[in-house]
Simulated scan of single mutants.
Amino acid sequence: MDTFARLVASQDGLITQAQAYQCGLTRAALRWRLASGDWREILPHIYATVTGDPTARQRALAGLLYGGAGAQLTGGVALRAHGFRYLPTDPYVRILVPRGQQRRSVSFVALHRTDRPDPRPVRVDPLLLASPARAVADAARWCRSRRQVRAMVADAVQRRLTTVAALQEETARAARQHSALLRAAVAEMADGVRSVAESELRQVLGASRIRPPIHWNPHLVSAEGGETLPTPDGYLADVGVALEVDSREFHTSPGAWSRTMARHNLLARHGAVVIHLPPSRIRGAPASVLAEVEQVYLTRRATGATAAIRFAESDPLPTRAPNRRRSR
């Protein structure tokens, strides 16, 4: 296979004008191929040597080729390449380019000049991706949906595509403009929240004025013997109330769902009251959810009920869900 064929094969059928000339193609030959329809210009000086509409991967690679030396793919398209399931609504292929780059955004490609390219890009041939943490941070800044931002951040942490520490580092370095949703979602993850539904529950319970701090995803053991117990989504320690967001999102088989129910029953056997809260109810009837949690808490406190459960020594300090400000 000659140099031209190898290059085109390695780039999913794409080639730049400069690469074509370097491979010996003349300007006249290039014009003929374009005029005949054998090749198509899909971005300025970026050509597809195959027929059909460009695939998502070809669009991403075309954006990188157009961006030139030092270009990195970021945002939602990079997240898709990293294997994320929850992606922001974004029509553009987002490309990070060095600050001195003179090219402009065009067609489906948005160029973002930066003095801070990702120092840890990931090569997924033939694409060069910003790291998962950087891609999440960038995508969140261009997203206006709180739920989508929460989903991206929760997906990253839940599936260990990146870490809370890496997201905090990116958040600290990111421009403050348009980063409020990102900062809020990362703060929730740092507090122990691990899903979008948990984030929404945290927000709902933040309106309460009567409950104590809630431990999110705490490490629990039995009061006698120190037996490791299941980790509830939230836990009110003084009255032994466990909060469980009963979503099937992370339980893709009947067996996994049954094991989750068994975990809940084990908490109950040690004296905890388990409140089961489906995401649809948290989202659709937040006032009802708040009233139920408060009522169970007040009833348990009035009767002096508690559970034979304590926190493991490694468990972090409790965190209080943010309260809404009273209007003045």
Score class of each variant (00 low, 15 high):
M1T: 12
D2G: 15
V8D: 08
S10M: 07
S10P: 05
L14T: 05
L14H: 08
I15S: 09
Q17I: 03
A18H: 04
Q19T: 03
A20I: 03
Y21Q: 08
C23A: 13
G24C: 05
A29L: 12
L30F: 09
D38I: 08
R40N: 13
I42M: 08
R57Y: 00
A60T: 08
G63S: 06
Y66V: 10
A69M: 06
A71L: 04
G76A: 11
V77L: 05
R80C: 05
P88R: 09
T89C: 06
V93I: 15
I95C: 06
L96T: 02
R99Q: 12
G100E: 11
Q101E: 15
Q102G: 12
R104S: 10
H112L: 14
T114D: 13
D118P: 02
V122N: 10
P126Y: 12
P126Q: 09
L127H: 10
A130Y: 02
A130Q: 01
A137E: 09
A137V: 02
D138L: 02
V149N: 07
M152K: 03
V157Y: 02
Q158T: 12
Q158S: 09
A165E: 15
A166K: 12
L167Q: 02
E169P: 00
E170H: 01
A172R: 10
A175P: 11
M189Y: 01
A190M: 03
D191M: 14
R194V: 00
A197G: 13
A197V: 05
E200Y: 01
E200L: 04
Q203C: 05
Q203W: 13
G206C: 08
S208M: 03
R211H: 10
W216M: 08
P218M: 10
S222L: 01
G226S: 10
T231N: 11
P232G: 06
D233A: 08
V241E: 03
V241D: 02
E244L: 02
V245A: 02
S247F: 00
S247K: 06
E249G: 07
P254Q: 08
G255H: 11
A256I: 02
W257T: 05
S258G: 04
T260S: 15
T260F: 07
A262I: 07
L266D: 14
L267T: 04
L267I: 03
R269N: 11
H270G: 07
I275M: 12
H276R: 15
I282A: 08
G284T: 07
A285N: 14
L290H: 06
T299M: 06
T299G: 00
R301P: 01
R301L: 13
R301N: 01
R301T: 00
A302G: 13
A305R: 15
I309E: 09
F311R: 13
A312Q: 13
E313V: 14
S327M: 14
